[in-house]
């Protein structure tokens, strides 16, 4: 591998290219990471991350355990504050706000407003155990979006129908299988109508036979379109089927990115090649 190839492999040019293409078409990215870093104590786990996600784009994040994928998603969901750099959502800084012409740390009100654009589905579902399935899905629209009980009910029922749980409305989460729980969690996040949604390894806590039903639901949502998705996953087939772009990260860097065909059929970097060799692709 020569120097230019290496550079390409390191993904250095890719964000610039994406940005250029977006500038050409005049589309503003829904999410932009600029020089974002994150440290826990003395340990820097993400280094100078630059990444744009276009509106409606489906981005799969793959990479070895501990590479920082979850942290990247959690910073977008405002669950973890970046240590450096800037995240922009829909053209507005996420963790910063303007005050007297200067950018200062965002307050709760700003974060609240920005969070309305973002949703997340967690590895361990985190359903509210003291509420019925229906209530899990209506409470957000009721209390946060402030819509009427009837409309919230209607939306929730539609959404639960979409994830195939129209018959489980009054059941409590503890009565559901893992796959069903995760589908409720997806409906709960979807009903808030975010512009970008983070899926953090949503199938890795599931029994193997339940993985398929959840991935099917996500594929269906992806097909519908408008919402951008950050899909953190260890399911390579799924990433290839759903993603517009696949990003391979390791040790806190984006090592390589590109369309799924390129990433899976023609990986450039040795890192990615050896990572992929551990998965047998069908």
């Amino acid at each position: 591998m020569n120097a230019t190839e290496l550079e390409k492999a390191a993904g250095q040019e890719a964000p610039a290219r994406t940005r250029k293409r977006q500038a050409d078409t005049g589309v503003q990215p829904i999410v932009r990471y600029e020089h974002v870093s994150k440290s826990f104590g003395d340990l820097e786990v993400l280094h100078d991350i630059n990444l744009d996600i276009a509106p409606g784009e489906k981005v799969a994040m793959i990479g070895p355990s501990g590479s920082g994928k979850t942290t990247l998603g959690r910073m977008l969901m405002t669950l973890e504050e970046p240590s450096g750099g800037m995240i922009t959502v829909d053209g507005e800084p996420l963790w910063h706000m303007k005050s007297k012409g200067r950018l200062v740390k965002a307050n709760e009100a700003h974060l609240h407003r920005m969070r309305g654009n973002i949703g997340m589905v967690f590895q361990h579902f985190n359903l509210f155990p003291h509420m019925s399935v229906l209530r899990n899905v209506t409470i957000g629209p009721r209390k946060v979006l402030g819509i009427s009980a009837e409309e919230a009910h209607e939306r929730a029922v539609t959404m639960l129908g979409k994830v195939g749980l129209g018959d489980k409305l009054d059941v409590y989460p503890s009565m559901l299988s893992g796959g069903q729980k995760q589908r409720v969690a997806i409906a709960r996040a979807l009903v808030m109508n975010p512009k970008i949604m983070v899926f953090d390894e949503v199938t890795s806590a599931l029994d193997p036979e339940l993985v398929g039903e959840v991935l099917e639901v996500i594929k269906e949502i992806a097909r519908e379109g408008e919402m951008a998705m950050m899909l953190i996953t260890h399911e390579m087939d799924f990433a290839r089927d759903v993603a517009d772009r696949v990003i391979f990260g390791a040790e806190g860097h984006i090592v390589e990115q590109g369309p799924p065909e390129q990433i899976f059929e023609n990986p450039q970097s040795e890192r990615l090649q050896s990572f992929l060799s551990r998965f047998r692709l069908s």
């Binding site: 969901m77 709760e108 969070r115 361990h124 985190n126 509210f128 946060v144």
Partner: peptide, 25 residues
């Protein structure tokens, strides 16, 4: 902690998180 995080992801205010999610549990 996941309960509080899920509530935050749904954009509950800190007070709402306490009232609807944390205290009942």
């Amino acid at each position: 902690n996941g309960q509080s995080e899920a509530a935050r992801a749904l954009n509950f205010s800190p007070l709402q998180r306490m009232i609807y999610i944390i205290l009942p549990q």
